[in-house]
Computed example of a mutant assay.
Amino acid sequence: MASSGVKVHQNCIDTFQELKLGKALKYIIYKVSDDLKSIEVVKQSEDADYDNFLKELPEDDCRWAVYDFAYKTADGGDRNKIVFYSWAPDNARVKSKMLYSSSKEGLRKVLNGLAVEVQGTDLDEVAHETVLEKIRR
C-alpha cells in the first residue's frame, strides 16, 4: 500500500510480469481508480510505436506507465530496458499531482525489474531522445 492509502491492484503486478517475461506487451498505463482507493491498469498494448505510447498520456491528468524501451548500444547491439514513467503534466490539478506523488512508491515497489525512472511534466521530458539519453547514462 502506498503512503497515500491507495492500494496496488493485483492486476497491475500480473500485467507487469506479462510485459517483463512475455515480451509481447510493449507498454502499460496505470492510474488511480475513480474511487481513489486503488491503482489500476488503464491500457496495455503491444504497439511498439513510441509516439502512440506518448499519445496515451493525458494533457491534464497524471498517470504512471511502464515501457519496454528498445535501443541500440554504441557497438550496435540490441538492448531493452524497462522504463517507469511518472507523468504529472503542468495543467493537472494540484490534488491529483499530490495523490500520484504520494502513491508512486507503492506501485514502484511491487514492479520488480524497473531499470530507469523518468518524471515528466511535458512531452519534451518524455521524448524518445530524452529518455534514450537517460537510459544510456
Rank of each mutant, 00 (worst) to 15 (best):
S96Y: 06
R93W: 07
N80D: 14
K97F: 05
M98W: 09
K104V: 11
K43F: 00
E46S: 09
E46M: 08
S101Q: 06
T73L: 15
Y85G: 00
S96T: 07
N91A: 07
E40W: 02
W64H: 04
K72I: 01
A65P: 13
V94C: 07
Q44M: 11
G106F: 14
G106I: 13
N80E: 15
R108P: 00
Y71V: 08
I82M: 09
V41T: 04
R79M: 13
N52W: 08
Y100F: 15
S96W: 06
S38G: 05
L99I: 05
Y67R: 04
K55N: 14
Y100G: 07
R108G: 00
D61N: 12
L107N: 12
D35Q: 13
V83C: 04
I82S: 01
L57S: 09
Y85N: 02
K43A: 02
Y100D: 11
V66R: 12
S38I: 03
S96H: 09
C62L: 11
D68Q: 06
Y67W: 13
E46V: 05
K43Q: 06
G77Q: 15
G77N: 15
V42I: 10
D90V: 12
R63D: 12
S102Y: 02
D90R: 12
D61A: 13
A74Y: 05
L99C: 04
I39C: 11
K81A: 13
F84M: 09
V66C: 09
L54T: 03
D34Q: 12
L57D: 06
V66F: 08
D35N: 15
K104P: 07
A88F: 03
A48Y: 10
W64V: 00
K81Q: 15
S101D: 01
P89E: 09
V41E: 05
S38H: 07
L54C: 06
F69L: 04
K72S: 08
V42S: 07
E105C: 01
D51G: 04
N52D: 13
P58I: 07
E56K: 12
D49N: 07
Y50F: 09
K37A: 04
K55G: 08
E40T: 07
D35R: 14
Q44V: 08
W87K: 03
K37Y: 01
V42F: 05
D47F: 00
Y67S: 03
V94E: 13
K95S: 06
D90G: 02
M98P: 06
A48T: 08
P58F: 12
K97D: 02
Y67D: 03
S38W: 02
A70S: 13
W64K: 04
F53Y: 10
E56N: 12
E59K: 14
G77I: 11
L107K: 14
A70I: 06
D68A: 10
S103Q: 00
